[in-house]
Structures are given as C-alpha cells and as structure tokens.
C-alpha cells in the first residue's frame, strides 16, 4: 500500500473547520432520525394522526375558536416534543450505551461539536415537521394568524431548547432501556395531560395550576396564542426559559459520556 509521506508535526489545520464538522454531524443525525422507523412514527405519523383525529371528531373539548385553528398549533408543539425530547433522549441513551459518544468525543468533532450537531439536527427536523403538519393543516382548512409567526418562531426555539436540554439530562444519566421507556411514557403523558394539544384552561381545574408550569403547556399555549390571536405570552416564554436554564445546568453537571 502506498501512503502519502507522513505529514510534518508542524502542519496546522488537520481537522476540518468547526462549521463543516457540525454541519456534517447535523446532517448525519437528522438523516439517522428520519430513517429510523420508530422515530419517524413518533415525529410525524403520530402527530399527523392526532391532527386529523382531533379535527375530524369532537370527543375532546378544545374550547373557543375553530377546531382546526386550535389543533394545529398544539400538534406543532407535539412535534417539538417528539423530535426534541423523545427522539434526542432515546438516541443519546443508546449512543452512550454503544460508546458512540466516547468515540466522537475523541474525533475532531469533540463533545461540544456533537451537542451543536444534535441541536442543529433537531431544528432542521422540526422545520420539516412544521412544513408537513402545516401543509396538512392548511388542507384541513387551517387559517393561521400570519402576524403571529415571529412569536411562533420564538416559542419554538425556546421550547426546543428546553426539551433538548431535558432530553440530554435524561439520555445522559439513565441507562438506555430506562431512557427508552421513560421518554415514550412522558410523550404520552404530556400529550394527554401536559397542555400540548388540549389547552391548559380546558384541563381539569385540579391539574391546571401544576400543568401551567410545565414546558409542554408553555409551548402549546404560547403557540396557540401566537397562531390564533397573534399574541405573545411572556409568562409562558419565561417558563420555557427557566426549564431550559435548569435542565442545561443539570445536564452539563450530570451528563455521563459512557454508560
């Protein structure tokens, strides 16, 4: 075998530029997510079923407003939880189990690059989910308040931050099987009772004050306020930011790179 003459110790820039490494990792992680059947089910198929189910039936009371206009923002919130929380937590748990995090930590990508890549991957998957669910919503007669789109973007970014940080906290501390069970269970619980698709003020009175403090309710309610009324809910943004900060601090202290 012919090798290039061994490069001199003083040669700089052996690693690819940081942006290229992160973009490569983001694309790899996003494609891995989209190719994984179970992940795709949770990220797109189930949210689409929730959308169609809630719009075409009236079992679940959703309060004032045209039904489709109330449902679509909630399903967008569900998308963020699916890919940002459930998807990232499970992938991180198993990558940790199989030593992937350790190996990538020794590559030029490094630990920070890996986290940046995961974040960028989630955001690009969320954009794709929004396009698909938005198009499906429009086909079902959704009429969003276009003036609420900037507020929607802010809510989405804050919600993604909070849920990805929570996912890393879970995926980085619990063993892989536990992560799998907990991340799916929490997805179901948040969908049913977390103020995601059912507005917090339509939940039983005993739950309401508690649920209002969850990031899921803050995300769902703020997306509904933005896309139904063009409103900004500062309190809900603060709730998401608080979860983001606490989860980020805890994750950075407790995250274990190996199982």
């Amino acid at each position: 075998m012919n090798q290039e003459p061994s490069t001199n110790a003083a040669t700089p820039d052996r690693a690819a530029p940081p942006a290229r490494r992160v973009v490569a990792q983001a694309r790899f992680e996003a494609l891995t997510m989209l190719r994984n059947g179970e992940q795709l089910l949770v990220a797109l198929v189930l949210p689409a079923m929730v959308l169609v189910g809630l719009v075409t039936t009236s079992f679940v009371p959703l309060g004032a407003g045209r039904r489709v206009d109330v449902v679509v923002p909630g399903v967008l919130a569900l998308c963020v939880i699916s890919s940002g929380f459930t998807g990232v937590a499970i992938a991180t748990g198993f990558d940790r189990r199989y030593g992937v995090l350790r190996l990538l930590g020794t590559s030029p990508l490094g630990r920070l690059g890996l986290l940046a890549g995961k974040a960028a991957a989630v955001l690009s998957v969320v954009v794709l989910q929004y396009v698909v669910i938005g198009a499906l919503g429009l086909a079902l007669g959704w009429e969003p308040r276009l003036g609420g789109i900037p507020a929607m973007v802010v809510s989405t970014l804050l919600g993604t931050w909070a849920f990805v940080a929570l996912a890393l906290l879970l995926g980085g501390t619990v063993r892989a099987e536990g992560v799998l069970a907990l991340a799916n269970l929490l997805w179901v619980l948040l969908l049913a009772l977390g103020g995601v698709v059912v507005p917090t003020d339509r939940l039983p009175d005993s739950l309401e004050p508690l649920v209002a403090l969850l990031p899921s309710a803050a995300l769902g309610d703020s997306l509904r306020a933005a896309l139904l009324h063009g409103q900004v809910l500062l309190g809900e943004w603060l709730v998401m930011a608080a979860w983001g900060i606490v989860a980020t601090v805890l994750a950075s202290r407790l995250f274990r790179w190996s199982d």
Partner: peptide
C-alpha cells in the same frame, strides 16, 4: 484530535 486515531474496545459505532 485529528492527529490521533482511536479504536475503542466497544466499537463506538
């Protein structure tokens, strides 16, 4: 890290 190649016992793939 780019100058150091690593093969872990558990593979890391």
């Amino acid at each position: 890290r780019a100058r150091v190649g690593v093969m872990l016992q558990d593979g890391g793939l």
